[in-house]
Design a protein around this nucleic acid. Structure first.
Lengths: 188, 188
DNA sequence: ACACTCCTTCACTGATCTGTATACCTTGGC
DNA sequence: GCCAAGGTATACAGATCAGTGAAGGAGTGT
């Protein structure tokens, strides 16, 4: 996706990622994004057509980066049992440099319009993670992988949602996730 | 808090709740809030001083309504063990009429400024729920009530975060919460 | 020589944003 | 009668919003 972007286009998306995530989508104007990326507003509109489409591209690119991180964490595991909770390891890494929670949930909060092109990106992302959990659980031989996947997804989102708050829930969540996976293998 | 408001002030907050929650805080202007509440913009500023303060009042009032619902669900329980998961029953009820996720998490997403008066309201709310979980767990004789409370909070937030998505996680989450509570009592 | 893509410059529209100024009306309490 | 409080009406400031129009420069491929 990003290979098809022009140099200016890449700079625009990079600036948009930084600004939209840290300050909020609605709060950031296209003028600021253009200025930060060293590009004319005209170029921004020539590349992306509208702010909404730029938002969708921003989320898509962020999604790709995040999925790559998750898959890398999964690949790093030798035991299929560890792989099931690998996304939580990735989450720990990811959270260190992304302290404002889940960009996708945040985007959902700001964009109530069900027709907004960004919504599909968000829904896809969550479904992808759930299906990944289910696949990994099946490979590891867990009982009821579908139910386990749903549970792990809720845990994952809960850890993300409470992350911007001073509550220190991430470690607790990872531990619970591992317990759930262990419990699902004992009974099988 | 709301008894101290004038009639016009109450109408303003009511309109603000509806608009801010469904459309987003940044996306809704004070002109619209004034119009919807049948009040002049001048009155709005005479009552609340600024939009930021109105946002804080909106969240505070919403918080009070939600806490009352949770406490009512807790009081309805005969068994102390059921009381621990009562907030999840309240969540089920609450979600039926609030389909855009957690207003407080959404507000956090829109208001990155750490000094914003609304942030303290959000942090208070989450901490209150965590402490309630801990208290109920202690009363029910659960092992490690602090850890259990952290876990239940994460579950609660995870269910809320995934609620606007077509994923049907609420029932799964409630079931898991009950299992966690049962497990914490077996070992004690 | 020609066309095409990428990007720039800059002015501009029309709407909307938060917040303020001024002046007036009405109601209840003393 | 008087005054303060709550509220109305209207107009406005100054900034910012998303998005467009028109023209041109620079590089590349043919």
């Amino acid at each position: 996706m990003q290979e098809s972007l022009t140099p200016a286009g890449r700079r625009i998306v990079a600036a948009a990622e930084e600004l939209f995530y840290t300050r909020g989508i609605t709060a950031v104007g296209v003028d600021l994004v253009a200025e930060r990326s060293g590009v004319t507003k005209r170029t921004l509109y020539n590349r992306f057509g509208s702010k909404d489409r730029l938002v969708a591209v921003y989320l898509t690119q962020r999604d790709e980066r995040w999925r790559a991180l998750v898959l890398a964490a999964v690949d790093r595991c030798d035991e299929p049992l560890d792989a099931v909770t690998a996304p939580f390891d990735a989450l720990t890494t990811w959270s260190e440099t992304n302290e404002r929670g889940c960009a996708f949930v945040n985007a959902l909060a700001e964009l109530p319009d069900p027709e907004h092109p960004a919504r599909a990106v968000v829904v896809d992302q969550k479904r992808w993670l759930r299906d990944l959990f289910a696949e990994l659980a099946t490979t590891a031989g867990c009982a009821e992988p579908g139910v386990l996947a749903d549970r792990l997804l809720v845990l994952h989102e809960g850890a993300l949602a409470t992350q911007p708050l001073p509550l220190e829930t991430l470690a607790v969540t990872c531990e619970l996730a591992r317990e759930l996976v262990r419990a699902a293998t004992r009974h099988s």
